[in-house]
Design a protein around this nucleic acid. Structure first.
Lengths: 338, 338
DNA sequence: CTGTTAGCGCGTTCAT
DNA sequence: ATGAACGCGCTAACAG
């Protein structure tokens, strides 16, 4: 590959002039500008991004950590992130937590060792421990949360998300208002804080309505289709089988509906199902899914904007940015068979 | 941040020794090894990846270009790619083509300007033109195709994929054998080579069976749910409405089934539907989807392994690596109502 | 506006 | 086995 030096030689100017041309063509005299342009053409020159980044001390990369790129909700969030990234000439590096779970310290190292300028955690399913190693670090590494709740462990990470607890209360209340009394909840995996607040909201709504939650009505489902299918089978065989099931995300609601039909029951006639996320599949399940809608793409955009602020040294604080949610009524919920 | 120099000073050795410790601890004397280790601990040192990469002349990044991260098929391919990447200490950089479509020359520039060591194209929906600018480049940039067909334009890019044409023939033949005569095909968008061979396979099977394909039976669907819904509506109103619809991917098949039911018809009683990909949703659609299964994760793994070979300077040729596919029979296809 | 100079942090010679 | 010295390609001072 030709380097900036070759271009400078061919153009008959210094490398500094070429460098200036690269960052701001207007800053050099017209004749030189043209000479440089021609030399670049002829040498087929492209700046070495590795050298540029090294010199500038930045990677141009934001790492996004999430449990599964496959989940349609996260896909939407990613879309928002990617959009902003592209505008700001940033690349995004995706890391699924499934394979390797890192501690916050290790994420911090990734930034300090210049593998990325900042990190967005879209879910803290991994064993995130508080930061110990660099308590006196000049400035904390830019790491923020998207859609996830802040856990006690996580110290003061900024986050962009909906009010999960309120949303879950709303969903549960919807079922209660339809007349359901036996309402179950399929949550994420045990360690997942992503759905913990949703569970709290469900519990709170049941309590306020004076409904008891039987043992076994709260069942972990791994946030996957298969997880939900297993959970649903267990619920249908429960001595006090629920007449409505609240799933912590749409993916699970899809598995849940399938399993209910598989058992020869009908949705919502025999069992109502409500989801969470309003993914693109929600409208085409059979029956179409009642669910809580989150502004996924907006969450992604806002999260990315804030991490870039943080990378630029702006203090974004740790007060979460709460975005709106809403209950979307479709056909998977109805009054219980009396 | 502390640099290698600080560590060397604190340990009382030269930076060369520290550097050696980093790449191969066994290569230095034990006492020095311990001194360095301790110094690294105390200075909280982490090697500057930017400097390392610059010095080594490699980015450690493979860029993956695909139309939509949301598509569950691509998600599976990505999983395979990510798996190998993680083993080989490579990062993957995702670029959706939706936003920006680049030419092969531009992709080539990305490699030459050291933004990535290699590029995997998972679909060439963008206007990929043959390479012009650097015909005499010492070595072509490592760019290969995953799952996509090689188009005439694309010169000699290596690829890993199934035999799309044969698979489509098999799917079509399945419908023919059930007794269908009016079979429609919902393809990808016009420019997409990804599904062009599937269309050819469909056409070939129809022809061989002596069935005519009416005008309007081949309809572009954008590879999305909504695209398929529009296409399906059009097909149902066609004067010679089909009794079976072959969708170029599962995502579209899901939209198709929904739209058929929406119209008050039943699947497969009134219209049979067959998909392509066997994504994780195929088993839980209602009815479960008959489809062509591709070994998506394998495709991802193989593609990644080969691009890494290419990055290492190994000549991987341009002969495509064909992986097996199979027809998965479920409940969305049946004999036509007589 | 331009050229000269000095590193950025690391890996890698070449001596020792 | 180790240290001194060089340079990767570029940007950002500074001086002219």
């Amino acid at each position: 590959m030709s380097s900036i030096k070759d271009v400078a030689e061919l153009a008959g100017v210094s490398i500094a002039t070429v460098s200036r041309y690269l960052s701001d063509p207007e800053s050099i005299r017209r004749d030189n500008r043209e000479k440089v342009a021609r030399a670049i053409q002829r040498t087929d020159y492209a700046p070495n991004a590795l050298a540029q980044n090294f010199r500038r001390g930045r990677t141009g990369i934001i790492m996004v950590v999430l449990p599964s790129v496959g989940d349609p909700f996260f896909t939407e969030v990613m879309r928002g992130i990617a959009q902003v990234a592209s505008e700001r000439h940033y690349s995004i590096l995706i890391r699924e937590t499934e394979m390797n779970t890192l501690s916050l310290d290790e994420y911090s190292d990734i930034v300090l060792s210049k593998q990325a300028d900042g990190i967005i955690l879209l879910a803290s399913t991994c064993p995130i421990t508080p930061m110990r190693r660099r308590p006196k670090a000049s400035r904390p590494a830019p790491i923020i949360l998207g859609c996830e709740n802040v856990t006690p462990d996580l110290g003061n990470l900024f986050s962009v998300r909906i009010d999960n607890r309120a949303a879950a209360r709303k969903a549960t209340r919807h079922l209660l208002e339809l007349g359901h009394e036996r309402i179950a909840f399929i949550s994420g995996s045990a360690g997942s804080e992503l759905t913990a607040d949703r569970e709290r909201g469900y519990v709170a709504a049941m309590k306020r309505a004076g409904k008891k939650i039987a043992d076994g009505w709260i069942v972990p489902g791994q946030l996957t289709i298969d997880g939900a299918r297993d959970a649903t089978r267990a619920l249908l065989q429960h001595p006090q089988a629920p007449t409505a099931i609240f799933c912590a995300n749409d993916e699970m609601a899809m598995g849940c509906i399938h399993e209910i039909k598989q058992a020869g029951l009908r949705v919502p006639d025999d069992v109502s199902v409500i989801g969470f996320d309003d993914t693109r599949y929600a409208a085409i399940t059979d029956p179409p899914l009642t669910t809580i809608a989150q502004p996924a793409e907006l969450i992604g955009q806002r999260t990315m904007l804030r991490i870039l602020d943080a990378v630029d040294g702006i203090d974004i604080g740790s007060e979460p940015e709460i975005v709106p949610h809403k209950l979307v009524l479709r056909a998977s919920t109805g009054a219980p068979a009396s």
